[in-house]
Design a protein around this nucleic acid. Structure first.
Lengths: 200, 200
DNA sequence: GTCTATACAGGGATAGAC
DNA sequence: GTCTATCCCTGTATAGAC
C-alpha cells in the first residue's frame, strides 16, 4: 500500500537529517561530509535530502534555527532579577553548559567558518548573538548602577568580551571537564567592582 | 638561456605560495581554495606547487612551521624577569598583538578545523602550545610563590585558560580595535591575588 | 515522498616535455 | 624547476520513475 502523504513522518525524517548533520559535520567538518553521507546516516537517499532541504547549506543552517527561542527565553528569564551580577553569571553558566555537548566544539568551529560564506546563516546567528548581547549589556548597566560591577567598564564592550570568553570555552572543550567553574571565576573577577577605593 | 638551478629563487617561490595561502585560506577557507587558486595568486603553475610541497596539506602546515622559533624566543625572554606577573602580562600582550593581523581570525579558525585531520599539523601546533603552556605555568608558579597571583589557582589550569582567553581575542578580532588593553585587564584580574584577606 | 540514475563541474595529484 | 595536459575521483544537484 503506497503510503499516503504523512507530514509527521516527513518532519521526522527531516529531523533525522539534522541530527546526523550535527554529528557528522562536527566530526569531519562541513566540506568533508557529503550529502550522501548525511543521507546514509539518516537512513534515506541523497535525493530525499534535497526534497526536504533546498541545498546543503540549508541542512547546516537547520542546526541553528532552533536556538533562537531558547536564547530569548534565557535572556528574558535572566532579566527578571534583583541581583544583576548574579544573573549575568547565571547566563554564563547556562551558556557554558552547552559546551558539555561533545559535538559543541566541532560545530562551533564550523559555524565560525561558514558564517562568512552564507548570508542567511549570518542573519540567523547574528540575531542570536544580538539577543544575548542586549541581555548582557542591560544587566551590566543595572549592575554598574547598583555598584556591583566596575563602573569603569563599557557595558557593550564588556558584553562582547563575555561572549568571546564563552566562545573560547567551547573551543577549549576537548577534554570533558566542566568549564563552568572557571568561566564563572574569570567573568566574575573581570566584572567585579574594585573592593578598595570608591565604595558607593 | 635555460636558467641554472637556483635554490634562492626556488625558496622565494615557495615563500610566495605560503604568503598566498595565508591570504586565501583566511578569506575563503581551506577547502574552498584550490591548489590552482594558490598557484595563480603566487604567480606559478599548479604543477610547480606540487614540486615545492608534497601535497596541499603541507602548504597549510607551512604557515605554522615558522612560528615555533619565535614562540620559544618569547618564552625564554619572558622567563628572565624579576616580576613574574608583569612578565605573564607581557606574554599576553605579545600574543595578543598577532590578532591585529587581518588574516589572523580566519587562519585561526582554519587551524582549529584542520588540526584534528592532519596528525603532522597537530604535532606542530601542540609543540607550539606546549612551549607557551610551560612558560605561563612556570611564571604562574613563581608569581604564586611571591604572592602576586592568587594561590588558589592551579598553575596548569590557569595557564590553559589564559591561552583560551587569548584565543577568544583572535575570534573577536573582526573589528580593528586593539584587543590588548582588555586582554590585559581580563587576565590581570583573573590572576590577581585577593587584596583583602590573607596577605603573605 | 522517496527512490535510482545521471548530468555536470571541479579538484588533487601525476606524467612527461622542456 | 617549471610548465601543460590530463587521469581519476568525488560531490552537488536534478530528472524522472514509482
Amino acid at each position: 500500500m503506497p503510503r499516503p502523504p504523512d507530514p509527521a513522518r516527513a518532519a521526522a525524517r527531516r529531523e533525522a537529517v539534522t541530527a546526523a548533520a550535527a554529528r557528522l559535520f562536527a566530526e569531519r567538518g562541513y566540506e568533508n561530509t557529503s550529502v550522501t553521507d548525511l543521507a546514509r546516516a539518516a537512513g534515506l537517499s541523497s535525493g530525499s535530502v534535497f526534497y526536504h532541504f533546498p541545498d546543503k547549506r540549508a541542512v547546516f543552517r537547520s542546526l541553528f534555527e532552533r536556538d533562537l527561542p531558547q536564547c530569548r527565553e534565557l535572556v528574558e528569564r535572566s532579566l527578571d532579577t534583583d541581583d544583576p551580577l548574579e544573573s549575568i553569571l547565571g547566563m554564563v553558566d547556562a551558556l557554558g553548559a552547552e559546551a558539555l555537548d561533545p559535538t559543541a566544539p566541532g560545530i562551533m568551529v564550523e559555524l565560525l567558518r561558514q558564517v562568512d560564506r552564507d548570508p542567511e546563516l549570518a542573519r540567523i546567528v547574528s540575531e542570536n548573538a544580538s539577543v544575548l548581547h542586549r541581555g548582557f549589556a542591560t544587566l551590566l548597566r543595572r549592575a554598574i548602577e547598583s555598584g556591583t560591577v566596575d563602573g569603569g567598564l563599557d557595558p557593550d564592550e564588556a558584553a562582547a568580551w563575555i561572549q568571546a570568553v564563552i566562545d573560547a570555552a567551547f573551543l577549549n572543550a576537548e577534554n570533558d571537564t566542566d568549564p563552568r567553574p572557571m568561566l564563572r571565576l574569570i567573568v566574575g573577577r573581570f566584572l567585579a567592582a574594585p573592593t578598595t577605593g570608591k565604595a558607593t
